[in-house]
Amino acid sequence: MNSFLAFGPILLMWSCHFKVSGSNVTEDILDDYGATVDYDKYISPCDKDGNRNFRSWFLPSIYSLICCLAILGNFLVILTYLYFQRLKTMTDMFLLNLAMADLLFALSLPFWAASVITKWNLGLVPCKAMFAIYKISFFSGMFLLTCISVDRYFSITKAVSAHRCRSSAAYYGRIASVATWAIAVVFSLPEIIYSNVSANQTCEPYSKEHENLRFSMQISQMVLGFVLPALVMIFCYSCIIKTLEQARNFEKNKALKVIFAVVVVFVVTQLPYNVVMGLSTQNTTVCDYDNSLLYAMDVSRSVAFLRCCVNPFLYAFIGVKFRNDLLKLMKDLGCLSQRYVIYSYGKRKSSAGFETETTTSFSP
């Protein structure tokens, strides 16, 4: 009996070795206790080659398009405001800072494209700067959009009290803008501290040792960068719509269209990305689901990045006063003829000569 106990494990190991190395190899292999092992239950490496190939051509293409449009649009906004010294209201100050934030982010997009195409060979400082610029421009942009909606709320629903504070509006706008940038820099500190170049030469915001911090930052970004601005915008624009509904001139229809466009663009560009980002905070071992989530993250993030080239057209170019200033600027730069500018300005003035301070404050 004792000899069997001594040689039993040796015989068992020999039989397993013979079964595996024989000519008829089966998928059922005995474990150390003689039970059949089903290897389908074990986690195998998830193949992500399809996602890598997709993002290698999709992300650089969409980033290049966004970069060109954002640089052109936001540069024209900044140039127009500075050329005509058009910083007389809080909305003007917020729009200028919003264009600066979007332009700053657009200038970082070539680095995002480079990080997708090839390995990161630019060093640690550009890696940290890329993620920090994104977070600073993201939070500052969202907070400035919130400030714009609040300013328009007071300008339209509280027109009398807002007119009394008109002389100091630009001053308070500067203070609010500086505070917005300062808060955005504070929220970007984790990216500045923890961004690093990994061993396989990729620029990553968080390493595997800081997964919990990454999840916490994603949740805070969703709350502070989407949920809070969305709630403020819904409240402000709902009150604005009620006020405009009481107006009797047909100019309110144009203002309502602007409000609808603002809300739709904000929801369409930001909601999918925040939903996917929320799903990515959950740990999963299903390969197909993980790959689908990666595709959704790449597409939704690209759509969210579109905001930096849509904001100039939505918040600045749609305003009558700003369009007139832009036409004058194009004429001074030699891009448009004097006859075209006079014709366009006179046509808009004849069709919108009844505009009040309320409508122009909503459409700067």
Rank of each mutant, 00 (worst) to 15 (best):
V77F: 08
V77S: 07
I78M: 12
L79T: 04
T80D: 11
L82C: 08
L82D: 03
L82E: 06
Y83S: 15
F84P: 01
F84S: 09
Q85I: 02
Q85K: 15
R86M: 14
K88R: 15
K88F: 13
T89I: 01
M90F: 02
M90I: 02
M90K: 11
T91P: 10
T91W: 05
D92M: 05
D92V: 01
L96D: 12
N97Y: 01
N97L: 07
A99P: 01
M100F: 09
M100A: 12
A101W: 06
A101D: 13
D102H: 08
D102G: 10
L103D: 02
L103E: 00
F105P: 03
A106Y: 06
L107E: 00
L107Q: 00
L109N: 04
P110I: 10
P110M: 03
F111H: 05
F111Q: 05
W112D: 15
A114L: 03
A114P: 00
A114M: 06
S115F: 04
S115T: 05
V116W: 12
V116G: 11
I117H: 04
T118E: 10
T118R: 09
W120E: 08
W120M: 08
W120H: 11
W120R: 04
L122M: 09
L122C: 04
L122N: 09
L122T: 02
L124G: 05
V125T: 14
V125A: 14
P126Q: 10
K128V: 01
A129L: 15
M130G: 09
I133G: 04
Y134M: 13
Y134Q: 12
Y134H: 15
I136L: 06
I136R: 03
S137A: 15
F138C: 02
F138N: 12
F139I: 01
F139Y: 14
S140Q: 05
G141E: 12
M142P: 05
L145W: 03
T146L: 13
T146V: 00
T146P: 13
C147F: 08
S149Q: 03
V150K: 10
V150I: 14
R152F: 06
Y153P: 04
F154D: 10
F154T: 08
F154V: 05
T157C: 14
K158F: 02
K158W: 00
A159Q: 08
V160F: 13
H163P: 07
H163A: 15
R164H: 06
R164W: 02
C165K: 11
R166A: 11
R166Q: 08
S167F: 01
S167A: 12
S167H: 04
S168F: 11
A170W: 08
A170T: 03
A170Q: 09
Y171P: 00
Y171L: 08
Y171N: 05
Y172L: 07
Y172P: 02
G173T: 06
G173E: 12
R174G: 04
I175D: 08
A176G: 01
A176S: 11
A176V: 09
A176P: 00
V178D: 11
V178R: 14
A179R: 04
T180G: 10
W181Y: 14
W181Q: 05
A182V: 07
A182E: 09
V185N: 08
V185G: 10
V186G: 02
F187T: 05
F187Q: 09
F187W: 14
S188A: 15
S188I: 00
L189E: 02
P190Q: 12
P190E: 13
P190D: 14
E191G: 00
E191S: 06
I192T: 14
I192L: 14
I192F: 14
I192Q: 11
I192S: 12
I193W: 11
N196E: 14
N196W: 06
